[in-house]
Design a protein around this nucleic acid. Sequence first.
DNA 1: ACTATATATCTGCATATGCAGGTAATTTCA
DNA 2: TGAAATTACCTGCATATGCAGATATATAGT
Lengths: 147, 147
Amino acid sequence: MTANANREFKSTCSASRFRKAARRITQIYDQLLEPYGLTITQYGLLGHLKYFDGISVGSLAEKLVMDPTTLTRNLRPLERQGFVSLTQDDKDRRSRKLSLTKTGLEKYKAARPGWQAAQERIANVLGPEDGRLLSSKIDQMIEDLRE
Amino acid sequence: MTANANREFKSTCSASRFRKAARRITQIYDQLLEPYGLTITQYGLLGHLKYFDGISVGSLAEKLVMDPTTLTRNLRPLERQGFVSLTQDDKDRRSRKLSLTKTGLEKYKAARPGWQAAQERIANVLGPEDGRLLSSKIDQMIEDLRE
DNA sequence: ACTATATATCTGCATATGCAGGTAATTTCA
DNA sequence: TGAAATTACCTGCATATGCAGATATATAGT
């Protein structure tokens, strides 16, 4: 045990703070979604595809603030399990249209209680006011940090 | 192009929000640290080790809100490049003590301008008040979400 | 002292993340 | 129209993340 081992380390680093928060939150959602056989990444993708039916890889990646190559790979397990289909876009044959399958929609709906439980876990520690405040500030920050 | 493709999708999902924010912030830090040959993960690890000299893998993982196995692997590239050393703890030979090497400390100090530039990029979009507010709320949230 | 349990770390597996660089299709423009 | 530039996606590589399960050491209970 060293001199600082038990001390607080109030880091001023924004990356450290947001990455810790994202890890902890991801852990909670992943644990509560595990019984339904989805990660929060996957649950979120299915939800986006339910809303943005027929969207392209690039457009969805942009909405997710994610590199298109990352999205390509994140879709792989969902394709393999038949939850998502990629079909060639006839208007632009470079592009692929993403859609939720019937099975995928069912999977998404079935997992909702897990997601809901995680949402409540977070809402409970933030409270309604701080919850709304943080949401709007962070959404604005993401928007302002877009190139 | 589908009906919803250009529309806003105000997701209420906390995981979606925090993960997007973490991705964007990570991208910014990684880009600005790239000339110095470090990722923000690595820069952050060196900074923690500068402060917590001789800490164990498990203790550091806890501080980072990170699985110990993840930390083990994140340390690998830093060990390989000689920035970090793992030595057996004589008090408890199951444990390993992590230390910054001289080279590691130099690397850390050299990369500071990249980190500083990223910090300022974030601070500029948040402003001082929201910056402080978000920091304290998020730190408190992380604390409250610890098991 | 011996056994059972607990702890600290590591490896194997699967997914998550993004850069560099490749291929195919589209668009620009001389 | 045909070459050049752009766009959309993909694969290869490296790091980031965590669970299950293995190994080695330490501690507790008898």
